[in-house]
Amino acid sequence: MIELVIEQRRRNLGGSFEVGRVLPFAKRRMVGPFIFFDDIGPIDIPRGVDRSADVRPHPHIGLSTVTYLFAGEIMHRDSLAYEQAIRPQEVNWMTAGRGITHSERLERARALGDRIHGIQAWVALPSEVEETEPSFSHHSGSDLPQWTEGGVIGHLIAGSAYGLTAGAQTHSPLFYAHLDLAPGASAEIPGGHSERAVYIASGALVVDGRRFDAGQMLVVDGSASRVTATEQSTVMLLGGEPVGQRYIYWNFVSSSQERLAQAAADWKAGRMKLPDADNAEFIPLPDEPAPPAPPMS
């Protein structure tokens, strides 16, 4: 059964670069540990595009960012000195923990022109590792197990599903998969987790006898088991176990409002290190106030 349908909401990140915001949603803040889900593009970037289309250095705490592309290339640089281009069917997995900063630049597009389409998700960290040391890893090839069956080409991005396990280190039970389905092809929604969702990146699906289109996320219960494509479709399947209540402010996630306020103060005061290879500019703290620290009990 479908519990909720979430429509993406278009957001401009600067210049002409748009994303489709899916999570968080007013009626559904998280699916398992997934607390943020943006559909990047699809957008054609002209050669020579202005640097305002880039995502300048900015901070994170308390989460892992998971960047996955269907098309194009984005250059990542972070405060741990990692510099890594991400391309289709690859994963940049960055665990912020107690704090990290990074940038995402459209350097290939600026030089040659490009078409960008992908997903960036945030996975909230369990309370016991929210303040872990930050880390970064890049995954491709055998780290993202692939299978083909009955008109379905699948890639497991993270976690365990379909009898496979992906290479990225996760901190709580979850699954995250990319499926390309030919018209009429059908695929199972992995079970074994208390919260699950289907996101249609392109094309259209039938689930529980109803048709759904690109830009929609379907939050499903345990009885929903399969999706069927009515046309060539690209689908993301995700889910896992809840990690408990999380607060979110700007790029920060935490189980503590006080910790969010501290992270905002640290960024505003310049106490978070910028990437060595990209430290000439940064995104300032938003004008809206940070969440107040909860009252002392």
Results as ranks from 00 to 15, higher is better:
5 V>R: 07
9 R>C: 02
11 R>Y: 07
11 R>N: 01
13 L>E: 14
16 S>W: 13
22 V>A: 03
22 V>P: 01
25 F>S: 15
25 F>E: 11
31 V>M: 04
31 V>E: 00
38 D>L: 04
42 P>W: 07
50 D>V: 00
51 R>V: 15
52 S>K: 13
53 A>N: 14
53 A>M: 15
62 G>E: 00
63 L>I: 14
68 Y>G: 02
70 F>C: 07
73 E>A: 12
76 H>W: 11
77 R>Y: 04
77 R>H: 10
78 D>W: 05
80 L>A: 09
81 A>L: 06
82 Y>W: 05
85 A>R: 13
88 P>V: 14
88 P>F: 05
91 V>T: 07
95 T>W: 04
97 G>M: 01
98 R>D: 07
101 T>Y: 02
103 S>Y: 05
105 R>V: 06
106 L>Y: 04
106 L>T: 07
110 R>N: 05
111 A>N: 13
112 L>E: 14
112 L>P: 05
115 R>M: 12
124 A>S: 15
125 L>W: 00
125 L>F: 01
127 S>L: 13
127 S>G: 11
128 E>L: 04
129 V>H: 00
133 E>A: 15
135 S>W: 03
136 F>R: 09
139 H>L: 01
141 G>K: 08
141 G>R: 12
145 P>M: 06
147 W>T: 00
150 G>K: 02
150 G>L: 01
153 I>E: 08
154 G>I: 03
156 L>T: 01
161 A>S: 09
168 A>Q: 05
176 Y>H: 15
176 Y>I: 03
178 H>S: 14
179 L>P: 01
180 D>I: 14
184 G>L: 06
186 S>K: 15
187 A>N: 08
187 A>R: 04
190 P>V: 07
193 H>P: 09
195 E>I: 06
197 A>M: 02
197 A>T: 00
198 V>G: 02
204 A>V: 06
205 L>R: 14
205 L>Q: 09
207 V>F: 08
210 R>E: 14
211 R>M: 11
212 F>R: 10
218 L>D: 05
219 V>R: 13
220 V>H: 10
226 R>G: 00
228 T>M: 14
228 T>W: 12
229 A>N: 03
230 T>V: 15
231 E>L: 05
236 M>N: 09
238 L>H: 08
244 G>V: 10
244 G>Y: 06
244 G>H: 09
248 I>Y: 08
249 Y>L: 02
250 W>K: 01
253 V>N: 05
253 V>P: 06
253 V>Q: 10
255 S>P: 11
263 A>T: 00
266 D>K: 15
270 G>W: 13
272 M>P: 12
273 K>Y: 10
274 L>W: 10
275 P>S: 08
276 D>W: 08
281 E>Q: 13
283 I>S: 06
283 I>L: 12
284 P>K: 13
287 D>F: 11
288 E>G: 11
292 P>C: 03
295 P>W: 08
